[in-house]
């Protein structure tokens, strides 16, 4: 007997991610999922971001790695709540890992939640974590053609951070070509060129972040009402 199923393989992950998304919606937290190769500079980028957040901003970071607490230790120096997710071998984060770590914070209201995925351009692309958007981090120490080689993440990301531009004088990397490839895969992708070392480009990035957060609050009709409900229940 053939029994039709017609369901996504990752439907269970998608179900958990939808739950995470609606809880984050209620507390109005802008959640971004950072995906990039190992060594693209995701942690340094987030460290600089945390340093530059205006005072009074609340933010939290979940950082994923196969082993070690090293990234959490680095990120925690900046005074924001951080949790390390060690996957113990899995090459990506999934929605259940994010959900269980957010329960540790009782789904507290933050302005921003940054999720640093495991360094990998392939697998993390397939797993919805309940985020508002994916940010792909590409560094100039890599090849310009990464967007063509790994189209999945460049297609799904709304923003590409072209990182480590301070190295441009020393490496044969053509930023225009990398941007062209990224736009070939995803014509709508927004691109910001940055250096976490010198701070170049962070003005644009911090402005983008603030705009994105305001847009989310503005366009999520349930936020104010849902927030009142959770506050007074």
């Amino acid at each position: 007997m053939i029994h039709p199923i017609e369901r996504k393989v990752l439907s269970e992950n998608d179900r958990v991610a939808a739950g995470v998304r609606s809880r984050l919606e209620i507390v109005g937290t802008l959640t971004l999922n950072f995906i990039g190769s190992p060594g693209a500079g995701k942690t340094a980028f987030l460290e600089r971001t945390l340093q530059l957040l205006p005072s009074g901003t609340s933010a939290a970071v979940l950082t994923g790695d196969i082993q070690t607490e090293n990234d959490a230790i680095r990120l925690a120096r900046h005074g924001f709540p951080v949790q390390q997710i060690t996957t113990g071998g899995a090459c990506h984060l999934d929605a259940r890992m994010v959900e269980s770590h957010l329960w540790e914070w009782r789904f507290k209201e933050f302005d921003y939640l940054f999720i640093e995925n495991v360094g990998n351009l392939v697998c993390p692309t397939s797993y919805d974590l309940g985020e508002d958007g994916k940010v792909v981090v590409l560094s100039v120490a890599e090849g310009e053609d990464k967007p063509m080689k790994y189209p999945g993440i460049f297609r799904k990301a709304e923003l590409m951070i072209l990182n480590k531009v301070d190295l441009l004088p020393y490496v044969p990397f053509q930023p225009e070509l990398a941007c062209e490839y990224a736009r070939t895969i995803n014509p709508d992708i927004h691109i910001i060129q940055c250096s976490s070392l010198t701070g170049e480009g962070f003005g644009d990035w911090m402005a983008w972040l603030e705009r994105r957060r305001i847009a989310k609050r503005h366009f999520s009709p349930n936020h104010e009402e849902a927030h009142l409900q959770t506050t007074f229940v």
Binding site: M1, I2, H3, P4, I5, E6, R7, K8, V9, L10, S126, G152
Partner: peptide
């Protein structure tokens, strides 16, 4: 595209 679906299952009674 990027489909990744379970299409059907064969069950023996």
């Amino acid at each position: 595209n990027d489909e990744l679906d379970i299409a059907w299952l064969e069950l023996d009674e």
